[in-house]
Amino acid sequence: MQESRLFRILYYLLDKGQATAPELAEKFEVSVRTIYRDIDAMSSAGIPIYVTTGRNGGIRFLDGHILDKTFFSSGEKQEILSAIQSLSAVQYPDIDNILRKLSAIFQTGLTDWIEIDFSRWGSAAEYENQLFIQLKQAVLEKRKIRFEYFNSSGTASIREALPQKLIYKDKAWYLHAYCLLHNGCRLFRFTRIKHLFLTETYFDAIPETDQNNFSQPQDTRPLINLELQFPPEVGFKLYDQLEDDAITQTQHGYTVNLTLPETDWIYDFLMSFGEKVTIIRPQHIKQKIIEKYEAALNHYKDT
């Protein structure tokens, strides 16, 4: 218990700069005598802390020596700053101010080692950045939101939701929220959220019965085993979109083996390679690709 209180006193003084013994005694619910014993213990441990008397007296750190080589090695201090800097890269609120303070306390320079930009290229980037800022605010302030949402079939509906967290997965941002329309937790893809509005209604928590019941929907369609061959020049595209263990490099290019439900994604993926893909199996996939190309050709001929 004493060790926990010593750290809390330490951080309180880091934040306030100076405090009196009675102030600390009231803050940590101990006697003034106990506070003085704690200060003696910290001083004995090498922490540059001292007590001044008089009208403006109090307990404070020796100027210019706060935490310098007291608790952390130079490597540990750099690791702490690097970890906090990674939060800054993803726009964690007020982290830059904390980062500057700790850098000054540790007397350690900052290295500009990370930059993260989750936004897409093009005109959609500005909208998505603004949406991210608004949703982050809604999550942190626990504010109910209202928006128009387009489902996978393109049907729009007005939703009200209690936002829980932002999730970045598989090259896309999602909002995890309690949907008041369906009375359950849902994932909302950023690109399908339109006309977001932050209401003035605040909430403490989502309904307990549903808080931990969120799971991503599972595709119940039968799985197929897909075997494909690609020439060497498209290898970069394969590694961009597929897991490494699905790709086997061969003398003439690449062989890809996938086991997944037969969805439109398969056809979009295969057709994106044009003539740079050979379907080994199953044969019905090859036939459907032919039909899709013929339909597209007829469409353009007709128009």
Rank of each mutant, 00 (worst) to 15 (best):
M42H: 06
S43H: 13
S43M: 09
S44E: 07
A45C: 01
A45P: 01
G46D: 09
G46F: 07
G46N: 07
I47W: 10
P48W: 02
P48G: 04
I49P: 02
I49A: 09
T52G: 00
T52P: 04
T52L: 11
T53Q: 12
G54S: 11
R55N: 05
I59F: 07
R60P: 03
F61Q: 01
L62Y: 12
L62A: 14
D63G: 03
D63I: 08
G64V: 03
I66W: 03
L67M: 15
L67K: 04
D68S: 06
T70G: 05
F71G: 00
S73T: 15
S73I: 12
S73L: 10
E76F: 02
E76H: 06
E79S: 14
E79L: 15
L81Q: 09
L81C: 14
L81Y: 08
S82N: 15
A83L: 15
I84C: 06
Q85H: 15
S86W: 00
S86M: 10
S86E: 05
L87T: 03
L87S: 11
A89F: 08
V90T: 14
V90Y: 09
Q91Y: 14
P93G: 12
P93V: 11
D94C: 01
D94T: 13
D94A: 14
D96S: 13
I98W: 11
I98R: 01
I98F: 11
L99D: 08
L99C: 05
R100C: 00
R100S: 13
R100L: 13
L102H: 07
L102Q: 04
S103D: 05
S103Y: 04
S103I: 05
I105F: 06
F106N: 00
Q107P: 01
Q107R: 13
Q107V: 03
T108A: 04
G109H: 10
G109C: 06
L110Q: 11
L110E: 10
T111W: 07
T111E: 14
D112K: 08
D112R: 13
W113P: 00
E115P: 03
E115L: 09
I116D: 07
I116M: 05
D117Y: 01
D117W: 00
D117V: 09
D117K: 10
F118N: 02
F118E: 01
R120F: 08
R120C: 01
G122N: 02
G122I: 06
S123I: 07
A124S: 15
A125T: 06
E126A: 14
Y127N: 06
Y127C: 05
Y127S: 05
E128T: 12
E128W: 02
N129F: 04
N129Q: 13
N129A: 05
Q130S: 13
F132Q: 08
Q134C: 09
L135I: 06
L135E: 05
K136Y: 08
Q137M: 02
Q137E: 15
Q137R: 09
Q137K: 12
Q137F: 01
Q137G: 02
Q137T: 10
V139R: 05
